[in-house]
């Protein structure tokens, strides 16, 4: 069976660390970084990239549109 793999790109400097994407992610791919970005927010990043299925839920709820999603079948 073909497996669907996804990948996200987070524009770290524009992330405001609201955690809405982390809560909505069905696979637990996203976590908040311990480091902060230039604005002082703990930004979102794909902590478990191998779990991503490219559903784009995170990108759809992100208020600042910082997430770009890619998806492919392997």
């Amino acid at each position: 069976m073909a497996k669907i793999r996804g990948s996200i790109v987070v524009n770290v400097e524009r992330c405001k660390g609201c955690e809405v994407c982390m809560v909505t992610c069905p696979t637990g791919t996203i976590a908040m970084a311990k480091e902060v970005n230039g604005k002082g927010y703990n930004y979102a990043f794909p902590a478990n990239p191998e779990l991503c299925i490219g559903c784009a839920n995170c990108a759809m709820v992100c208020p600042d549109g910082v997430i770009t999603v890619y998806k492919t079948k392997i």
């Binding site: 990948s7 790109v9 794909p46 990239p49 770009t68 890619y70 492919t72």
Partner: peptide, 17 residues
Amino acid sequence: VEYSGIKEIIKPVNLVY
């Protein structure tokens, strides 16, 4: 500055959102 997941998947042809 970006932080991305698996690099091989990130291609314009695979773009979803």
